[in-house]
Design a protein around this nucleic acid. Structure first.
Length: 578
RNA sequence: GCCCCGGUAGCUCAGUUGGAUAGAGCAGCGGAUUUCUAAUCCGCCGGUCGGGGGUUCGAAUCCCUCCCGGGGCGCCA
C-alpha cells in the first residue's frame, strides 16, 4: 500500500520537475507514519525537498501535489498541507481492511520479504567460547543476539550458516588441564589447595607448599566448582591411577569434552543450533598458517623483531604492528584468525558477519586489514559489536568476577527464568549499549509486568478467543471469504495499521542487524491488542452480530499471525494458552 | 595519553539513517470500579535529549570541542 502510494507520488513529482525544466531525478523522500495520529496515516516531505529546485515555496508545491494526486484511485481519503510543507495523507478505511486480508493470506510468510539485493550466502560466527568453563551472561547475550540476527537475515532471503569457532589447544587449555589435575591430586591428599586469600587476590603471596604438601594448582588456574567435579568424576572412573599422568593428557581431554558437552546443552536449551564448528587446530594441521605467513611475507607485510614474527599493520593504515608468531615459535591468536577468515571466503560466503564482545573489537581491524592484503574484499566482512551484561537483583548490581569463578552462568539463569524470558531480555536492548538484566523483572510471572509474557499472552489471547468461539459454535472465518468492512472503530484501524508495519520493521531490523526493533515492535502490537480485548464492555469480539464477530475474529487472526511470526524471529515460543 | 561504545523522564531504555508539540515500560500521584493489605480500568505528573559551538527551511540524530561512565590499548583469547 505504501509502495503504491509512493509510486503515484513519484510520478507526480517527476512531472512537476519536468514542467519546470528540471531533468534531475526525483529525490528519495520520506513517506512514513507520523508520530502523531492527527498528522494522518502517512506524512510526506517531498515538497520540502524539491521546493528549491522548483523555485516555489514548499507549501505551494505541496498544494499542487495534492491537487494532482486526487484520491489516487480510491487509495487516499483525505490530504492536507501542514507545517512548513508536509503533505499529510489519510488512507481510505477499505484499504486498511484489505490490508488485513493480505496478512491472513500471507500467514507465516507475512514479514518474510526477500530483499532485492538477493539471496546472499552469509556466514555468521558467534559465541566461539573456548571450552574452559560454562557460558557466562556475556556469552548468553552474544548467543541470543547472533541467533536472532541469523533469523532476521533468513527472513529477508539470505542463506545463513551459523558457525562456532574454538580452540582446544593453546595456553588456555593447558591451564585448564593443570587446574583439573591439581584438584584431582588435592582430592587424593597428594597436594594442598591454595589458600582462599591467595586465590582471591592476584597480588597475594603464593605458597609453594602447605604442611609438607605441594601446591600444584596454577596461579592463573580456573577456580570454578566444575573443575573439582570433573576431578571427582575422573576419580570415580580411574581411582588414583592417574596421579602420574601429565596434565596435558587425560585431564585436559576430560575437561574439554565435558565442558563442551555442557556448552552445547546450554545452547540447545536456548534453542540455538550451530551448523558448523570450526577448530583453530585445523589451520595448524593443514599448513594453512605457513601459507598465510608466506603470502603476507611475499607482500612485504611481515618482519622479524626480537625473535618474534610481526605483521606490518602500520603499512595497512593501522596504528601499530602486531605479533603473528611469538618468540617461542607459537602463533598468537591473530594468525589463525586471519587464516580462518580467509577460509570463510574460500568456502564461498559472500557476506561474513562476526559477532564480538566489546573486549575483542581491537582485534577486528587487524584481521580485516590482513584479509584485504590477501586479496579478499574486506567490505564483505562485518562486525557486530555488543557490550557486556550486568545483573541487577533487589535494586543491587550482582558482583561478577571471572577470576574467582564467581559469576552467574547462563544455565543458572535459564533455570530461574526459562529460555523465552532469557532470550527476550537479552535481545531487547540494542547491542552496542550495556545491558542491565533485571532479574526481579525477569522472574516476575505477572504477564502485565514481564514484557516477554506480555507479548506471549497477547498471542495466547487470540487462541483464547478462538476457543471461546468454538464453545459458542461461532465458526472461524475462512481466509477466502472474509468481510473486514465491519472493522471501523479507531482502535481497530490503529491495530491494522500497526500490523501492516511489520514487514518494514523486519526489513529495517535485518538491514541494520538490530533485532531489538522486533522486540519493541511486538510490545507495541501487544500494547494495542491487550487493552482491546481487556476492554470487553465496549466492544466484544464475539457478539450477536455474526458478520461483525467474523470481522473481529479476522482481526484476532491478523494479530496472531504477526505476533507468532515476530516471536519466531526472536526465537520465542508462541503459546496457545498460558 | 590514544582508540571504541554509551550519556534521552525518578529507574530501565526506544527514537524508523535530518522532520512537525521527543516516546514506552516500571516507579510516583489522582480518580473510578471493587466484599478484604489484592486486582483491574482511566487520567495526571514528569525533559536545558551530558555542556557549548557549528552546518540548514528544520538537529536527540550530522561536524567540532569539552565533561562523565564502561571497555580496550599483551609475544593472553
Amino acid at each position: 500500500m505504501r509502495e503504491r502510494l509512493r509510486r503515484v507520488l513519484e510520478e507526480h513529482l517527476a512531472a512537476a520537475l519536468r514542467e519546470a525544466g528540471d531533468a534531475g531525478a526525483v529525490p528519495a523522500f520520506a513517506l512514513d507514519p507520523p508520530r502523531q495520529a492527527e498528522h494522518g496515516d502517512f506524512a510526506c516531505n517531498a515538497a520540502l525537498l524539491v521546493a528549491k529546485r522548483l523555485r516555489q515555496p514548499p507549501q505551494a508545491v505541496a498544494e499542487r501535489l495534492i491537487a494532482a494526486l486526487g484520491d489516487a484511485g480510491g487509495l487516499v481519503a483525505a490530504a492536507e498541507v501542514a507545517g512548513p510543507g508536509f503533505v499529510n495523507l489519510w488512507i481510505a478505511d477499505a484499504e486498511w481492511q484489505r490490508g488485513l486480508l493480505g496478512i491472513l493470506a500471507a500467514g507465516s510468510a507475512f514479514g518474510r520479504v526477500p530483499r532485492r539485493d538477493g539471496a546472499l550466502r552469509t556466514q555468521i560466527e558467534f559465541v566461539s567460547a573456548n571450552p574452559t568453563g560454562p557460558l557466562t551472561l556475556g556469552h548468553g547475550r552474544q548467543a541470543v543476539l547472533g541467533d536472532c540476527i541469523a533469523r532476521l537475515l533468513e527472513a529477508v532471503g539470505q542463506q545463513v550458516t551459523r558457525e562456532y569457532y574454538f580452540n582446544d589447544g593453546g595456553r588456555q587449555m593447558r591451564v585448564l588441564g593443570q587446574s583439573v589435575k591439581a584438584r584431582y591430586l588435592e582430592q587424593l591428599g597428594l597436594a594442598a589447595p591454595p589458600p582462599v586469600a591467595a586465590l582471591a587476590d592476584a597480588e597475594a603471596p603464593w605458597p609453594e607448599s602447605i604442611d609438607g604438601l605441594p601446591v600444584v594448582f596454577p596461579r592463573d588456574g580456573y577456580q570454578g566448582d566444575y573443575i573439582a567435579e570433573i576431578a571427582t568424576d575422573l576419580r570415580a572412573c580411574h581411582g588414583d591411577s592417574l596421579a602420574e599422568q601429565p596434565a596435558e593428557g587425560v585431564f585436559r581431554e576430560a575437561a574439554q569434552k565435558r565442558i563442551f558437552a555442557e556448552i552445547e546443552a546450554t545452547l540447545t536449551a536456548l534453542g540455538i543450533r550451530f551448523d558448523v564448528y570450526t577448530n583453530e587446530k585445523t589451520f595448524y594441521e593443514s599448513g594453512e598458517l605457513e601459507r598465510v605467513l608466506d603470502e603476507l611475507r611475499g607482500r612485504d607485510l611481515v618482519y622479524e623483531h626480537e625473535g618474534a614474527v610481526w605483521l606490518r599493520a602500520t603499512a595497512l593504515g593501522l596504528d601499530r604492528d602486531r605479533v603473528l608468531v611469538k618468540g617461542s615459535g607459537e602463533p598468537t591468536y591473530l594468525l589463525p584468525d586471519i587464516a580462518y577468515h580467509r577460509d570463510k571466503f574460500r568456502r564461498g560466503f559472500e557476506r561474513i558477519l562476526d559477532i564480538q564482545g566489546a573486549d575483542h573489537i581491537e582485534q577486528f581491524p587487524f584481521v580485516r586489514a590482513a584479509i584485504g592484503a590477501l586479496g579478499c574484499d574486506p567490505e564483505r566482512v562485518e562486525l557486530v559489536m555488543h557490550q557486556f551484561v550486568t545483573l541487577t537483583s533487589g535494586g543491587q548490581q550482582v558482583k561478577q568476577s571471572t577470576r574467582r569463578a564467581n559469576y552467574v552462568t547462563v544455565d543458572e539463569l535459564l533455570t530461574q527464568v526459562g529460555a523465552d524470558v532469557f532470550r527476550f531480555f537479552m535481545v531487547q536492548r540494542k547491542a552496542e549499549g550495556h545491558l542491565d538484566f533485571d532479574l526481579d523483572l525477569a522472574k516476575e510471572r505477572d504477564w502485565k509486568k514481564n514484557p516477554a509474557f506480555y507479548v506471549q499472552y497477547a498471542h495466547a489471547r487470540t487462541w483464547g478467543i478462538e476457543r471461546k468461539a468454538a464453545e459458542q459454535g461461532v465458526p472461524m472465518p475462512s481466509a477466502a471469504a472474509i468481510d473486514a468492512s465491519g472493522l471501523t472503530l479507531p482502535e481497530e484501524l490503529t491495530l491494522i495499521r500497526k500490523l501492516l508495519e511489520f514487514p518494514a520493521v523486519v526489513a529495517q531490523a535485518a538491514a541494520a542487524c538490530e533485532p531489538h526493533h522486533i522486540a519493541y515492535y511486538l510490545r507495541d502490537v501487544a500494547g494495542l491488542w491487550n487493552p482491546y480485548v481487556q476492554d470487553g464492555t465496549r466492544h466484544r469480539v464475539l457478539s450477536e452480530d455474526a458478520s461483525l464477530s467474523a470481522a473481529r475474529l479476522a482481526l484476532a487472526l491478523g494479530v496472531r499471525t504477526v505476533l507468532a511470526n515476530g516471536l519466531e524471529l526472536l526465537g520465542l515460543s508462541a503459546p496457545e494458552r498460558m
